[in-house]
Nucleic acid binder design. Structure first.
Length: 274
DNA sequence: CCGGGCCTGCGG
DNA sequence: CCGCAGGCCCGG
């Protein structure tokens, strides 16, 4: 459930805390979390120093010297933590040990998350980063139009497609649809130029708001020091089934779109016809 | 385009 | 105690 704003929050914290550190060892209490096999990953990592930390979509990329990249995807319940609470040690899947004695823990209750270690020449292919679409926050209106104008498909489904736009997940997709006043099932091809333009603006606004509030701690998200975000207090529809719409006071409904729980206001978000 | 698989905790 | 939660991959 960490989406672009939550991942960005983590990356900003890491950039302040991990740069310059030398990795002395990688451990994997759950070996399947690491690709390639742990001994291979360890050999590639040997003696690597962290030069920078970046984000691409929902991927976290550690730039290491000697042209090595360590990539993390948190999927649903993954966390990167400098300290793990008592009782949650059983969820630690991977540990990065540093030469200064500190350790960064990859904890993940549901084991969907992964850590990859690869040379710079192959890491994008090996992780799936090469298949990602554009970065929503680097996007200008002309490029956005190039991607979405004339495209067919369901609005919410298109927002969730990482090969079009990298980083939007279920929560922000619903928030974006609410912000432009369209039902998540609206077909893209029915959007006029003005609506496309407002969609473009809404994507940027929703994601930037999320970053400004250090992410939404809805179910699981915490920062690297265990601190929660604040954006859950600012969500307009997600998780608000049966509660009055902030805009019109009608009750928020929940349905399923693209296989995911989807919240919307039936009166503020009509399905666009024709 | 839909649904199952990966997984576990927790809500109903 | 069943089934839902959902990012992403894959197969039909």
């Amino acid at each position: 459930m960490p989406e672009l704003p939550e991942v960005e929050t983590i990356v900003r914290e890491l950039r302040e805390s991990v740069c310059g550190k030398e990795i002395s060892k990688i451990e994997a209490p759950w070996r399947k979390a690491v690709k390639p096999a742990l001994n291979v990953a360890a050999r590639i990592l040997k003696g690597s120093k962290v030069e920078d930390v970046m984000r691409r979509g929902k991927f976290i990329i550690f730039i290491l010297n000697k042209n090595v990249r360590l990539v993390v995807h948190l999927r649903m319940t993954g966390r990167l933590l400098w300290r793990v609470e008592q009782g949650r040690a059983k969820f630690i899947r991977v540990i990065l040990r540093f030469a200064d004695g500190s350790s960064l823990y990859f904890s993940d209750v549901r084991r969907f998350g992964r850590v990859w270690v690869y040379p710079v020449e192959v890491y994008k292919k090996a992780t799936g980063i090469s298949k990602l679409g554009v970065e929503p926050l680097d996007l200008d209106w002309e490029s956005f139009k190039g991607i979405f104008k004339g495209r067919r498909g369901i609005l919410k489904h298109s927002l969730l497609r990482q090969d079009l736009l990298a980083g939007v997940g279920n929560i922000y997709a619903d928030e974006i649809c609410f912000r432009i006043g369209l039902h998540p099932l609206t077909r893209l091809e029915k959007l006029g130029n003005d609506q496309l333009r407002s969609l473009f603006k809404a994507i940027g606004e929703c994601l930037r708001d999320g970053i400004e509030h250090c992410g939404a701690s809805i179910s699981d998200f915490v920062g690297t020091k265990g601190t929660i975000g604040q954006h859950q207090h600012y969500l307009r529809v997600y998780g608000r089934k049966g509660k009055p719409c902030y805009s019109c006071s009608n009750l928020i409904k929940k349905t399923v779109v693209a296989g995911r729980g989807t919240f919307f206001c039936p009166s503020c978000q009509p399905i666009l016809k024709k």
